[in-house]
Design a protein around this nucleic acid. Structure first.
Lengths: 164, 164
DNA sequence: TATTGTTATACTCTATAACTATA
DNA sequence: TATAGTTATAGAGTATAACAATA
């Protein structure tokens, strides 16, 4: 009889609960690590995308980060004001603004990455190296398609009809 | 040379980004699965805890679910009104209210679990059985201690001082 | 007509503060 | 004094709607 195995019932078995707890702890640490950055943890994600990914439109970036395009406007306003990113016109489609990091933005990003690395190590302190790599890889696999997943239809009886 | 290995740079390498994307997709599916339940996905978590865990105080439950105790009051008001949980006096400490599921609550919970199981399978469709178990177990391990983790102190230079 | 980006507005959610009762 | 629970209020974050520019 083993102890502390994966329970198949209760909150700990709830994928939503475990994800929420882990993400909440991560956000808490990330906020501390980005306290002086406009937009906080999300500002860091914007900066990271601007520096290291193909520059797309603001809406594409907003979708990738899971925020509304109107929120992206405010977020970029602050990052531009801080001199960390620029809005560049897209020659192929003049409606688009391409988001790219400035030189200063890249310097700041390096420092932010260092802090985030420390915060992530702290969060995953209970896992060894192989387990951390495994967790990261599995999450990346799911995240790769989850962003564009449609929730399944619920052909279920209504709760109100159960044991009325 | 393998393709599509774990990148060590960019958004996909960001633990916060992958967690956010996965949790967002999960919440979207969970909301659809609990559309007719007071409190939505969080109502399900309360119901699950009330039915399957040692009944503690409202604040203890709130902390476990990562919400403020004032939010727990509203949440329970609605679940009680729906006849799914009860607030019972604690003989050992009359300040506490023990949250327990009603018979109807347990019946509804079984149906909700069935829906959530389907939603989770949909979300993890890209992983095989062993990988799903691995992901669940790793997340449970981290969630087990992450809820009471203190964010590390940042003995870092301020962003404003970098490349001024 | 559809899409990008912006702005202003309204809404939802959450936290804060004050209060009662118990310890 | 400290804590559990409740209530009312204020704040942060988010989405909605309307607009101009471009396709």
């Amino acid at each position: 009889m083993s102890t502390a195995v994966t329970p198949d019932t209760g909150l700990a078995a709830d994928l939503g609960w475990t994800l929420s707890v882990v993400l909440r702890a991560y956000v808490k640490a990330a906020k501390a690590a980005t306290a002086d950055l406009p937009g906080g943890p999300r500002g860091h994600q914007v900066l990271s995308a601007a520096a290291r990914e193909e520059p797309g439109s603001q809406s594409a970036l907003a979708h990738r980060l899971g925020v509304d395009r109107t929120v992206m406007t405010y977020l970029l306003d602050d990052l531009v004001a801080a001199g960390l990113v620029e809005r560049q016109p897209d020659p192929a489609d003049r409606r688009n603004r391409r988001v790219v990091a400035t030189g200063r933005g890249r310097t700041v990003l390096a420092e932010l990455d260092r802090r985030m690395r420390t915060a992530e190590d702290h969060l995953l302190a209970g896992l060894d190296g192989a387990e951390r790599r495994s967790l990261r890889e599995l999450l990346q696999r799911v995240a790769g398609y989850a962003n564009d997943l449609d929730p399944i239809a619920n052909t279920c009886e209504a709760i109100a009809d159960i044991a009325p």
